[in-house]
Simulated scan of single mutants.
Amino acid sequence: MTSLNHCIKFQLNITDPNLLFSNYYEKLCHHKQTKVYVAELVQPACPVCHSSTLKHNGHYVAKVRYLTSNASQPVLLELHKQRVICCSCGKRSMAQTDLVGKSCRISNASKLKVLTALTTDRSMTSIAQENNVSTNTVQRVLDSLDTPFRAQATTLPEHLAFDEVRGVGHKLHFICLDGDNHRIITILSDRFKKSIVKYFEQFPITIRKKVKTVSLDLNAYYQAIAVQLKGFLY
């Protein structure tokens, strides 16, 4: 089983030591032949008191959608999450992993792939089909990641890139990237001047003046915004 566990983890690029794969099979799901990998998610210690003296209290089975290179053959992770009772503090808990959010059925890797696809000029429908998720899921990924980008933004890179991504109903969203490593700085719910200016004005002028370049297409609309925000192309 150790060899099988290692091989599946290598194939799926998974490193979580608390995830132990034991089997795999194929089944027909939503008219598509689906690969299913079975694993037990172990709870090594109590999340409250960190005691390793735990009493097993069953499992919770979750089917998680995972990355696939072939859209016609989806991949599911059948996670058997351990439920435990801490013998020290008596608290009940269930094993969790960074692979997927709590109570979520779509892996974080899949969400990241969806978000990366949103940076290209493509429709949400095509992105959803490629990743075996619904169009609403693609929209939720975009919406859920918008707030953390804003909340964590405390500085700006020296080189920025402005563009837009197409959303549900052909709606366009403003996206700002780090011009050096293409890391996403923010994605706004629209591409209106008022929204863009409001976002960047949350940064002090001293931070904005550190921006050396802004990469744009031929859209004069963004050029005017960059000039207005003191410190950009100034």
Results as ranks from 00 to 15, higher is better:
189 S>L: 12
189 S>N: 14
190 D>S: 12
190 D>T: 09
190 D>W: 03
191 R>A: 12
192 F>Q: 15
192 F>Y: 14
192 F>V: 13
193 K>G: 05
193 K>S: 14
193 K>H: 14
194 K>T: 12
194 K>M: 03
194 K>S: 12
194 K>G: 00
195 S>C: 11
196 I>P: 03
196 I>F: 09
196 I>E: 07
196 I>N: 08
197 V>R: 05
197 V>L: 13
197 V>T: 11
198 K>G: 05
198 K>T: 10
199 Y>W: 15
200 F>V: 02
200 F>K: 01
200 F>N: 04
201 E>P: 03
202 Q>I: 05
202 Q>N: 11
203 F>I: 06
203 F>M: 13
203 F>G: 02
203 F>C: 02
204 P>Y: 06
204 P>D: 12
204 P>E: 08
204 P>K: 08
205 I>Q: 12
206 T>Q: 15
206 T>K: 11
206 T>D: 14
207 I>S: 06
207 I>A: 04
207 I>P: 02
207 I>Q: 11
208 R>T: 01
209 K>L: 01
209 K>D: 00
209 K>I: 00
209 K>V: 00
209 K>S: 06
210 K>M: 09
210 K>G: 08
211 V>T: 08
211 V>L: 02
212 K>F: 07
213 T>A: 01
213 T>P: 01
213 T>E: 04
214 V>T: 09
214 V>R: 08
214 V>F: 03
215 S>R: 10
216 L>M: 15
216 L>F: 14
217 D>L: 07
217 D>S: 07
218 L>A: 02
218 L>I: 03
218 L>M: 13
218 L>C: 06
218 L>V: 04
218 L>W: 01
218 L>Q: 05
218 L>H: 04
219 N>R: 10
219 N>I: 09
219 N>T: 11
219 N>K: 14
219 N>P: 01
219 N>M: 11
220 A>W: 00
220 A>N: 04
221 Y>V: 05
221 Y>L: 05
221 Y>A: 08
221 Y>F: 07
223 Q>L: 07
223 Q>E: 10
223 Q>I: 00
224 A>S: 15
225 I>H: 06
225 I>R: 02
225 I>E: 03
225 I>D: 01
226 A>R: 05
226 A>S: 10
226 A>F: 02
226 A>D: 06
227 V>K: 15
227 V>T: 14
228 Q>Y: 13
228 Q>L: 09
228 Q>E: 15
228 Q>A: 11
